[in-house]
Nucleic acid binder design. Structure first.
Length: 316
DNA sequence: GTAGGCCCGACTGTTACCTCA
DNA sequence: CCTGAGGTAACAGTCGGGCCT
């Protein structure tokens, strides 16, 4: 099988850095090399990843790591155990050229993908068992389902804090994540992902509920609006058929909360009433809360003469 | 048996924030 | 003090396997 990918300009010797393994690897280099028997995935990771240890399927040089794709990529286990996640979004771009080639294997990114895939493989291995097929085809994506106990425990933790730690303290957060992971026999990354998804789905559910509530409110208001429009029409019809004394300009009457007399907020009474209702914000608020606004157009509602302005108690 | 929908674990890309040189 | 680089968590969007109907 012949497969090669070069990121450098030298097409004759695309993988020259393999020959001088201890050479400069200041940037993230990725190379693919192929032979009849194997495919190798090579990454220059520099010295900044001291936690990368030699594992089965991984040959490790001083400044690079060579991942044998024909072997189960159980790597970085110690690193994950320690919680020093290699996750770094910034490193994703470094391997974008692999995305197509390894879309079903390592979809992209050195760190997050590797960690994620490792989660798959290892979880499948240690917690759910591995079928023969899995053994033979270790790179196939294996769906993991958390057990009821694991989910319940995570739910409990989520109820306490919907983030792993409300304060942005990385150490505490890491510890919390690790503790949960250890307790549940999961990878820290799994705990992290679970919380992320849980938050996302909670938010989605809440949005749906809010939407439903607003819809009901809207329906109620529409109904109320329809009712009021109808009432207005009736009142207008009534007004046009009433005798002279009822042909007063339309006005609004406000019932005084203390004496329960009706005060008009229009016509001659306006100045005092306005003054009374606008003297203070609290007075206005109280009036809005307790007063009853009535339409004058229905004569049977008002068997008594037009109300006198009753000053607020504070003024008397 | 299988097509379709749903759930949910996992991944990618982006953003905001923090720390440090 | 300011600034840029690097690291991290959180988020939105998406994919895809597993399960159920």
């Amino acid at each position: 099988m012949e497969l090669a990918l070069s990121l450098g300009g030298d097409t004759q010797k695309p993988f020259s850095f393999l020959e001088k393994s201890t050479n400069n690897s200041s940037s993230h280099e990725e190379l693919l090399t192929g032979s009849n028997k194997d495919i190798r995935f090579c990454m220059g990771l520099g010295k900044s990843n001291p936690n990368i240890a030699a594992e089965p399927g991984l040959t490790n040089g001083p400044e690079r790591m060579v991942l044998d794709m024909n072997r189960r990529p159980i790597i970085l286990a110690e690193e994950a155990e320690e919680g020093t996640d290699l996750s770094s979004p910034n490193s994703n771009s470094a391997v974008s050229s692999f995305q197509m080639e390894f879309s079903s294997i390592y979809r992209s990114g050195i760190s997050r993908s590797l960690i994620g895939k490792r989660d798959h493989f290892e979880a499948g291995n240690t917690e759910r068992g591995v079928s023969d097929e899995d053994e033979n085809n270790g790179l196939a994506r294996k769906k993991l389902r958390l057990t009821k106990e694991q989910s319940a425990f995570l739910e409990e933790s989520f109820k306490e804090h919907n983030t792993l730690n409300p304060e942005k303290n990385f150490n505490i957060l890491q510890k919390q994540k690790l503790a949960l992971a250890k307790q549940l026999n999961l990878r820290p990354r799994q705990v992290e992902v679970w919380f992320q998804n849980r938050r996302a789905r909670t938010k989605l559910k809440q949005t749906e509920l809010d939407c439903e509530y607003l819809k009901r409110c809207c329906e109620k208001l529409t109904e109320e609006n329809r009712r009021l429009q109808k009432e207005l029409q009736e009142l207008r019809a009534l007004k046009s058929s009433q005798p002279f004394y009822m042909q007063l300009p339309a006005t609004t009457l406000t019932m005084c909360p203390s004496c329960e007399r009706v005060a008009t907020t229009a016509a001659t009474a306006v100045p005092t009433a306005a003054a009374a209702t606008t003297t203070s914000a609290t007075a206005t608020a109280n009036a809005a809360a307790t007063n009853t606004t009535l339409s004058l157009a229905k004569p049977n509602l008002f068997p008594f003469p037009p109300a006198q302005i009753h000053p607020p108690q504070a003024a008397s």
